[in-house]
Amino acid sequence: MVTAVTSFGRSGTSDWLVQRVSGVILLAYFLFIGSNLIGGVDYIAWKALFAHTWVKVFSLMALLSLAAHAWIGIWVVLTDYLTERLMGAKGNVLRVALQLLVMVTIFVYVVWGVQILWGY
């Protein structure tokens, strides 16, 4: 068994499942937003839409899905290419630094998103 403490769920099975489920949620959310945008919206209609609690909850679900989806996806890419095997010791430094950067970025977006959804 290969250990990997920075992966999302620390289990390949769990990461795989989260990746698929979050993908479906994101697809549903973008279809929902798309169907609302397609006829054109004004500020009043857009604000009225987001006044519904279920729209906020759905948006939050999509936001968290995006965060998980992005982390799992980027983690896989980083552990494929930025490794000691391919780049020597500096691969480890670069990988961990980028992992931190991505983690902080995702965290900021989640907090900011929550603020937007419930703040206005």
Partner: peptide, 12 residues
């Protein structure tokens, strides 16, 4: 199966 559950062995 327990030995294969990590993010690398199978899921790469």
């Amino acid at each position: 199966l327990a030995k294969l559950d990590d993010p690398f062995s199978v899921f790469r």
